[in-house]
Amino acid sequence: MSIVSGYKKFKKYILTSSGFQLVSHWTNANTLQFDDGKTAQAKLGAIDGISSSKDSSSDKIAASTKLVSELNSNLGGQFGGMTFWVNDTGDPCVTYKVGADSVSKKLGRSPIVITGIYFSLGHGAVNDGGTIGACGFSKDNHFTFDVTDYEIMTIGTVSISDKNTYDSSYIRCTVGSNSYTLKSGLAIDISSAKSATLYANPSGYGNLGASVQSTVSVSSITFS
C-alpha cells in the first residue's frame, strides 16, 4: 500500500488497574520539528517565560501583549500622539494634532538662528513733493537662504530708522512666488520653498528733492 499524505489524529489508551489511561509518549524539544524544519528548541528554547513586568531585565523573558499595549499607550502620550513616517521621497515626517486638525511636517535639520541682518539705504526722490519719489533700489543688496529642509521662518524684531519725515523703508522677503513685508514676530510657511530672499525696499515721498537715508534691520531669523 502507498503512503498517503496528511495526518490522522487519534488517542491511545492503555488498560491499568484503575481503568483505561491516556498514553503520552515522551518527546524532547530537540526532536519536535516545525514546518520550516527547525526544532522547538531552536525556535523557542531561548524563551524562559512571559512577563507583564516593566522591571524585568532578563533577555530570556518575553513581553506579554498586556505590557506591549501599556508601553504603546505610554509612548503615544509621551510624544503627544505624534506619528512618525517616511514620505515618497524618503524624508522623515511627523503628523500631530493641533486642536481637531492633523498637521503633517517634514523633519528637517535642527533649528538655525541667523542674527544681525542689516541694510543701509540711500536714494533720491523727484522734485514734486506730494507724489511718490523715484525710489529705485538694487536687489544685489539682499540675503538668500537655502530653506530646503525647513518648514517655518520666524522673524525677530524688525527695526527701521528713516532720516526724513516722509520716508518709509521696509524689508521684503520673497519665498517662491509669494512676497512678504517683514514685521516683528511674523512666521512664514517655507515648507514648499527651496530658498528665501530678503531685501530692503526704500520708499518715500519727494519732499522737494531731499535725498532719503534709511537703516533697516532684523534682530534674528529662525528657520525650523
Rank of each mutant, 00 (worst) to 15 (best):
V98N: 13
A100S: 11
K105C: 09
K106E: 10
L107V: 09
R109E: 02
P111V: 07
I112L: 07
I114W: 00
I114F: 05
T115K: 00
I117V: 12
Y118K: 05
S120Y: 14
S120E: 15
G122N: 11
H123I: 03
G124R: 02
A125D: 15
A125F: 11
V126D: 12
V126N: 12
V126G: 10
D128M: 06
G129H: 09
G129F: 00
G129M: 07
T131R: 10
I132V: 07
I132G: 14
A134Y: 03
C135T: 15
N141D: 13
N141L: 09
N141S: 14
F143G: 00
T144E: 09
T148R: 07
T148E: 09
T148D: 08
D149Y: 02
I152A: 15
M153T: 03
T154E: 15
T154S: 08
G156L: 04
G156M: 00
S159G: 03
D162Q: 09
D162P: 06
T165F: 04
Y166C: 05
D167S: 10
D167H: 10
D167I: 06
S168V: 07
S168C: 11
S168E: 11
S169K: 07
S169H: 07
Y170P: 02
Y170S: 14
R172W: 00
C173D: 00
T174H: 06
T174R: 12
G176H: 09
G176S: 12
S177C: 08
S177H: 13
N178G: 12
Y180P: 01
L182W: 05
L182S: 03
S184D: 01
A187M: 08
D189Y: 11
S192I: 13
A193W: 03
K194Q: 11
S195W: 02
T197P: 01
T197D: 01
T197H: 06
L198A: 06
L198I: 04
A200M: 07
A200K: 04
P202A: 10
G204T: 14
G204F: 05
N207V: 05
L208S: 11
L208K: 07
A210N: 12
S211L: 11
V212T: 08
